[in-house]
């Protein structure tokens, strides 16, 4: 497992579930269907999300191997990307007021249409959509995957990121746990913001390293 990907996922997991869950979870789970069925639905949702993430891991590696060849260039470009995206994450974590950062949470109507065509596909499709959302932590994960030296490592990075964000969804079937979404949202977003400082540090170190090689 890639530790940095996992920690990034962990730090964003709370915000992730706090933004997705209020809209998605009750909608996906329906009412009174039982814990076992809920876990089955959440499992499909997470599977869809994992597919979305792995697709992006592949893209990240493709971009990386096509553009970033030299070590100095690689360090500098990824360092700058880290600095930019971490700045975005810090802003998102501490200063941005709106909460709708999750693609899946914003596209409920699309899922309703999809549900009418093929109900069984809904949870996985919703999961796939969250896997393709361009929120700041995701952009950092994309940069992290691009930094890896092989396709396998990029996939592993996103898989670790997925594991980190998914831990909190284990509680999702117990919907009652989420009675204080607003608090979770604030705490989760702040956690993302703090992790942003870590990536700002990593980006600065990489940029300095790249400049030194030059």
């Amino acid at each position: 497992m890639k530790l940095d990907g996992f920690i990034l996922g962990l730090s964003n997991g709370v915000a992730c579930i706090a933004t997705c869950a209020p809209v998605l979870i009750p909608y996906l789970l329906g009412e009174g269907k039982g814990i076992v069925r809920n876990y089955w639905v959440i499992g499909q949702f997470l599977f869809g999300r994992l597919l979305g993430y792995l697709l992006f891991a592949f893209l990240a590696w493709t971009v990386s191997s096509a553009i970033l060849q030299e070590a100095s260039q690689r360090n500098m470009i990824i360092g700058v990307a880290y600095i930019l995206f971490s700045g975005l994450l810090i802003f998102y974590g501490f200063f941005k007021k709106t909460n709708a950062t999750c693609e899946a949470a914003c596209n409920k109507n699309k899922y309703q249409r999809l549900l009418a065509i093929w109900p069984a596909l809904l949870p996985a499709a919703a999961g796939f959509a969250t896997g393709l959302s361009f929120c700041p932590p995701f952009l950092l994960a994309f940069t992290g995957a691009a930094e890896q030296t092989s396709l396998m490592m990029s996939l592993l990075f996103f898989f670790s990121f997925f594991l980190g964000t998914s831990i909190f969804f284990v509680l999702a079937p117990f919907v009652g746990v989420f009675s204080r979404f607003s608090v979770l949202q604030i705490v989760g977003k702040m956690a993302s913001g703090i992790i942003g400082f870590y990536y700002l540090y990593s980006g600065s170190i990489m940029l300095i390293g790249g400049l030194k090689i030059l």
Binding site: F6, L10, V14, V187, I195
Partner: peptide, 21 residues
């Protein structure tokens, strides 16, 4: 008042990060 939640965030992060690292 939102800053009142920062200690809980720091707590969550340090507990998880310390466990993993």
């Amino acid at each position: 008042p939102k800053w009142n939640y920062l200690p809980y965030t720091v707590l969550l992060l340090i507990v998880l990060a310390s466990a993993v690292t």
